[in-house]
Design a protein around this nucleic acid. Sequence first.
DNA 1: TCCTCATGTAACTTACAATATTACATGAAA
DNA 2: TTTCATGTAATATTGTAAGTTACATGAGGA
Lengths: 155, 155
Amino acid sequence: MRRDGKLSRVLHILLHMAEHKGPVTSEVLAKMQHTNPVVVRQIMAGLRNQGYVQSVKGHSGGWTLVCDLSRITLSDIYTALGSPSILAIGNRTEAPGCLVEQTVNTALGQVFSEVEELLLSRLGSVTLDMLSKDLHARLVARGASHNHQQSSHAC
Amino acid sequence: MRRDGKLSRVLHILLHMAEHKGPVTSEVLAKMQHTNPVVVRQIMAGLRNQGYVQSVKGHSGGWTLVCDLSRITLSDIYTALGSPSILAIGNRTEAPGCLVEQTVNTALGQVFSEVEELLLSRLGSVTLDMLSKDLHARLVARGASHNHQQSSHAC
DNA sequence: TCCTCATGTAACTTACAATATTACATGAAA
DNA sequence: TTTCATGTAATATTGTAAGTTACATGAGGA
């Protein structure tokens, strides 16, 4: 099954923006992800609507972070992306009136809800700030203590 | 993303078989699920390999349960199906050397593992027997206390 | 003013995995 | 020996994420 990579992708983008002074264009972000600028804009649209980032058109335009990283959790981001489906397995509903199907779907449905709840709660316990601090620790560990302008995560 | 419905499907099949004396053909099971007999055989192959069901060819052949329902959990079934992917969201690996990507993937990876662990543990806590008892409770609740031969879950 | 840069978005194409179908082989019972 | 049923490979269909194209909008700069 094909897995939705939007969350992973947008976090990569946000961390990059946090390291960068000034706006970043969709084209730069797209190159970083080996994808298309339009895909970047589509993903970022949700974050813009929530006010987490800002986009500016024209010369020296692009995307800028406009939020406090310590106040945004991964579940906020997940929600801004439109809460894509979490589970790759699900219930069939071929015979809605069938008691057997109802039995199965109720049992599985309870398990699935519990799992989704855990996922959201775990995502809610991680802030972007925590990820950013983790990134800096990795940069130091790699010995990449140059200034950020020509930082070592060109990707 | 398209969700894998094998687990839901195979549980429906197993509960049906539990209600039925004697072998059931793939064709009957397929009609019940509004699908194709070949799909049923493919799904059931995994269960047969684990010894949970038996298949017999030719006249009055078909599928039979050959296990104690109280000793088989939903996670056993899930495993017999080949442990299909659980999560619909995942990490991208466009830039494996990138520290940003490593940071993001590590954080998400931990969450994902925890979630998968919970799912397997919850599936492991439900036996087929429990589902079967639940089904009977529903049959009684509907007032379908006729004999099982012409039971009300024709689907 | 006009040109260039950048986003905004709809429409369309591609890629891929789950499901469905076809075709034919195998083997058991009537 | 005919019929019924499974076993399985090969192929087709379908649903969805991702990628692409095309064009509109709007903000500087020459």
